Simulated scan of single mutants.
Amino acid sequence: MSALENLTAEGKELLRRDQVWPFLMPKQQAVDVSHQVILYVEGLNLSFDGFKALNDLNLYINDGELRCLIGANGAGKTTLMDVITGKTQCDSGTVYFGQNHNLLERSEPEIAELGIGRKFQKPTVFEAHTVFDNLELSLKTNKGVMPTLLARLTPTQLDRIDQVLEIIGLKEQRFMLAGALSHGQKQWLEIGMLLVSEPRLLLIDEPVAGMTAQETERTAELLTSLAGEHTVIVVEHDMEFVRSIARTVTVLHQGSVLAEGTMDQVQNNKDVIEVYLGEEA
């Protein structure tokens, strides 16, 4: 009798080629959104050599919403995202992911594991690899040495990659080198790389910078489609693009929230008009 025939049913199940071994998978951590809010930012302060980058900033993002952050250069948009993702430590304040995860006590990798993904303005894809390979590399798996060596794509993971390729509109380019994609397609691929890691919260920085009008329209459709299943925060300077996707807009100025509401409410806000147009209210 062969060794394989001697295996128990549990052993055979473990050795299936499409089986994901539990110890290879990262631990899932629940996020408490029982109050419908997924991100709490309260009393956030941060100074750089006397410059107040964040000034008693308060921000609340509902679970599943699409929120746009706007403001002039230096308003605190990027610094805020740096603090949320653990790249920069603040001087004081609190940042919670749901009600149960204090982000200020977490490292960047730990914050990513919780389900917070960030896309920077310039696309950072692996240009010498195919679109498919980029997505495979971004799957939410244990990235340790042994788990990586033993990793195998499962039907579920293959289905997830196909699903994301459909969402980002790159099914026909799946085996194309990422370096051969257009600028807009690289942006979509990077959003896809976030999506396969199954984030709850997406931070997207200036997604349409340098895009054609057609690519901008497609990006608006893409980001709008993600809201609900995901929470999406978009930082953008293109006001027409913001108008096309935003239900709620938050205006930052000198490290604080200056105004918040619909695009029409924000554009007609006397403080926003005075600050950005230099007009007397």
Results as ranks from 00 to 15, higher is better:
residue 148 T to M: 14
residue 151 A to G: 07
residue 175 F to T: 10
residue 158 L to T: 10
residue 146 M to Y: 06
residue 168 I to S: 04
residue 165 L to D: 11
residue 179 G to D: 12
residue 148 T to I: 00
residue 139 L to W: 07
residue 143 K to D: 07
residue 173 Q to D: 10
residue 156 T to Y: 13
residue 162 D to N: 07
residue 175 F to I: 07
residue 161 I to R: 01
residue 166 E to L: 06
residue 137 L to G: 11
residue 190 E to A: 08
residue 184 G to Y: 01
residue 152 R to E: 14
residue 156 T to C: 13
residue 168 I to E: 05
residue 143 K to S: 05
residue 187 Q to T: 06
residue 178 A to F: 04
residue 165 L to F: 12
residue 146 M to Q: 03
residue 142 N to M: 08
residue 179 G to H: 06
residue 137 L to C: 13
residue 183 H to K: 00
residue 150 L to C: 15
residue 176 M to T: 10
residue 139 L to T: 13
residue 176 M to S: 14
residue 176 M to Q: 15
residue 183 H to W: 00
residue 182 S to T: 11
residue 159 D to T: 10
residue 167 I to L: 11
residue 149 L to K: 03
residue 162 D to V: 01
residue 146 M to A: 09
residue 149 L to G: 05
residue 182 S to F: 04
residue 185 Q to S: 01
residue 152 R to D: 12
residue 166 E to P: 08
residue 136 E to G: 04
residue 138 S to T: 08
residue 175 F to R: 04
residue 139 L to E: 15
residue 179 G to I: 08
residue 185 Q to A: 05
residue 186 K to Q: 15
residue 189 L to K: 01
residue 159 D to Y: 11
residue 169 G to P: 12
residue 171 K to A: 09
residue 151 A to L: 02
residue 187 Q to G: 06
residue 160 R to M: 11
residue 178 A to V: 04
residue 187 Q to I: 01
residue 164 V to G: 12
residue 158 L to D: 12
residue 183 H to L: 04
residue 151 A to M: 03
residue 146 M to N: 00
residue 154 T to A: 08
residue 152 R to P: 14
residue 184 G to S: 01
residue 182 S to I: 05
residue 174 R to P: 02
residue 142 N to L: 02
residue 189 L to C: 05
residue 137 L to D: 09
residue 163 Q to M: 08
residue 146 M to W: 13
residue 169 G to K: 07
residue 178 A to C: 02
residue 186 K to C: 06
residue 185 Q to V: 06
residue 163 Q to N: 15
residue 147 P to Y: 02
residue 171 K to Y: 05
residue 188 W to Y: 03
residue 159 D to P: 11
residue 184 G to W: 03
residue 186 K to A: 03
residue 160 R to L: 14
residue 188 W to H: 00
residue 139 L to S: 14
residue 150 L to D: 09
residue 171 K to W: 02
residue 179 G to R: 01
residue 161 I to P: 13
residue 142 N to P: 06
residue 144 G to H: 10
residue 144 G to K: 03
residue 174 R to D: 00
residue 184 G to L: 07
residue 147 P to F: 03
residue 189 L to E: 12
residue 156 T to W: 09
residue 138 S to Q: 13
residue 161 I to A: 06
residue 175 F to V: 02
residue 160 R to P: 07
residue 159 D to I: 09
residue 138 S to V: 09
residue 142 N to F: 05
residue 188 W to N: 05
residue 158 L to P: 07
residue 155 P to N: 14
residue 147 P to L: 08
residue 147 P to R: 01
residue 149 L to Q: 07
residue 150 L to F: 12
residue 145 V to L: 14
residue 150 L to P: 06
residue 169 G to W: 15
residue 185 Q to D: 10
residue 139 L to P: 12
residue 190 E to V: 03
residue 169 G to C: 11
residue 143 K to H: 04
residue 156 T to G: 13
residue 140 K to R: 15
residue 157 Q to A: 14
residue 188 W to C: 10
residue 180 A to G: 02
residue 179 G to W: 04
residue 187 Q to N: 01
residue 160 R to N: 06
residue 136 E to I: 14
residue 154 T to K: 03
residue 175 F to H: 13
residue 172 E to C: 03
residue 143 K to F: 00
residue 176 M to N: 15
residue 137 L to A: 14
residue 140 K to E: 07
residue 152 R to F: 10
residue 170 L to V: 13
residue 167 I to F: 07
residue 183 H to M: 04
residue 160 R to G: 05
